[in-house]
Amino acid sequence: MAITKKPTKPTPADTFISGAPDSTASTADAPRRVRKGRKVQITLTITESMLARVDELAAQLGQSRAAVINLAIFQTLETGVRIDGGD
């Protein structure tokens, strides 16, 4: 008969640390996602000048920055994107 250690329950700190995106406990197959209701949070990096233009447009439309970005993504997915700058 082998002697084995009694399994321990993870502490809240262990759960918090293993949930970190860079944790070795994270699986490579399944991307970690932060959900906000029915939406998924992402990180977006853009230039300051583009961010200023987005904020200006959002103010003109009376919308949030996120709403303007979501609208731009939606319209691009629906109508396509022009890469060459042509009409």
Rank of each mutant, 00 (worst) to 15 (best):
M1P: 05
A2N: 08
I3Y: 14
T4D: 09
K6V: 13
K6Y: 13
T8P: 00
T8C: 06
K9I: 10
P10L: 07
T11L: 06
A13R: 08
A13T: 07
D14E: 15
D14P: 00
D14Q: 15
D14C: 03
D14T: 13
T15D: 02
T15C: 03
F16K: 07
S18W: 11
S18H: 06
G19A: 09
P21F: 00
D22Y: 05
D22M: 04
D22Q: 09
T24N: 07
A25T: 08
A25F: 14
A25Y: 14
S26T: 13
T27I: 12
A28E: 07
A28W: 10
D29R: 15
D29V: 15
D29P: 01
A30Y: 09
A30T: 12
R32C: 04
R33Y: 02
R33Q: 09
V34F: 08
V34W: 09
V34N: 07
R35W: 14
K36S: 09
K36H: 07
R38W: 01
R38T: 07
K39V: 01
K39R: 15
K39G: 01
V40K: 01
V40Q: 04
V40G: 00
Q41P: 01
Q41Y: 05
I42R: 13
T43L: 08
T43E: 10
T43V: 14
L44K: 01
T45C: 02
T45K: 11
T45I: 08
I46K: 08
T47E: 14
T47G: 12
T47V: 05
T47N: 12
S49A: 15
S49F: 14
S49I: 10
M50Y: 13
A52P: 00
A52M: 06
A52Q: 04
A52C: 05
R53W: 01
R53K: 15
R53A: 15
V54N: 00
V54F: 09
D55C: 05
E56S: 11
E56C: 04
L57M: 11
A58R: 02
A59Y: 02
G62E: 07
Q63R: 15
Q63W: 14
Q63E: 12
S64E: 03
S64C: 05
S64M: 07
R65S: 02
R65M: 03
A66I: 08
A67F: 06
A67M: 09
V68D: 01
N70D: 14
L71Q: 04
A72Q: 04
I73Q: 04
F74K: 04
Q75P: 00
Q75Y: 11
T76F: 09
T76E: 06
T76H: 06
T76D: 01
L77S: 05
L77R: 10
T79R: 12
V81N: 10
R82E: 13
R82G: 12
R82L: 11
D84G: 06
D84C: 04
G85W: 04
G85F: 05
D87N: 12
